[in-house]
């Protein structure tokens, strides 16, 4: 514990950097996945190639992606943009399918009622389909958030500044304290992300609270 308090500044600055590297791609990834998921739902022939194709990106091991990407982007490995892009790719990989399935989970008769009442396609998406897909998309976001926090720590091997550097600090000095602090900080950050998503989801889904989950 004394080690933790002596290095509080480090923990906070690396923690913030970690949150930035894992969190920003979550938002960008969601913004990219929304139109892609919508397309996959709108045009049936796109569903299989989109969900399978983007899903396949998730199979690329993160260390490999961190090393390969700079070659394509023309930036140094240690550039934070490298990690941001990689994490965005993973987020999109997870969310395209989630968004498509979430939009697809809107009951048919509800969609039809909306159409029959004269919603235009765009209005219907924002007023009906998207709000109703929030619970499913949120579940996907929670998986992506926790997964992102864990994956970012792999950047340690390449020397990228984030909480994982405590792992190598401890390992290289044969010293458990920083190692445990690093792991605990990663878990706390993951739980924080999870909590933020849960709170946002509750704010966006008042009807689920009122009905105890039925809807």
């Amino acid at each position: 514990m004394t080690w933790f308090f002596d290095h509080l500044d480090d923990v906070l600055s690396r923690g913030l950097q970690h949150a930035y590297l894992a969190g920003v791609p979550l938002v960008i990834g969601l913004l990219i996945a929304l139109p892609l998921g919508w397309l996959a739902r709108r045009y049936k022939f796109l569903y299989a190639p989109f969900t399978a194709g983007f899903g396949l990106l998730y199979t690329i091991p993160s260390l490999a992606l961190f090393v390969i990407l700079p070659g394509f982007l023309g930036i140094p490995i240690l550039d934070p943009v490298n990690v941001l892009v990689a994490m965005t790719i993973y987020t999109v990989a997870l969310l395209v399918r989630t968004v498509a399935d979430g939009l697809g989970a809107v009951p048919d008769h509800v969609q039809q009622a909306a159409t029959a009442m004269g919603y235009t396609r765009v209005k219907r998406f924002f007023a009906i389909e998207l709000p109703l897909a929030v619970p499913v998309i949120s579940a996907g976001m929670r998986v992506a958030a926790v997964s992102n926090v864990s994956i970012v720590s792999v950047g340690t091997i390449l020397g990228i500044n984030q909480l994982g550097l405590f792992f190598s600090d401890g390992f290289n000095r044969d010293f458990y304290d920083p190692l445990f602090v690093g792991i605990a900080a990663c878990i706390v950050l993951a739980l924080l992300f999870d909590a933020v998503i849960i709170v946002l989801t509750r704010l966006f889904t008042p009807w689920l609270r009122a009905t105890g989950g039925r809807a």
């Binding site: 569903y47 399978a52 998730y58 399918r97 989630t98 499913v136 579940a139 998986v143 864990s150 994956i151």
Partner: peptide, 25 residues
């Protein structure tokens, strides 16, 4: 079932709200 894709993320359980853990490193 033809819509059921064959990706590694094809780990939905009954509803898409529940996913088998598919984190990797």
């Amino acid at each position: 079932s033809s819509r059921r894709s064959n990706t590694p993320l094809d780990v939905e359980i009954v509803s898409s709200q529940r996913t088998v853990d598919s984190q990797h490193t």
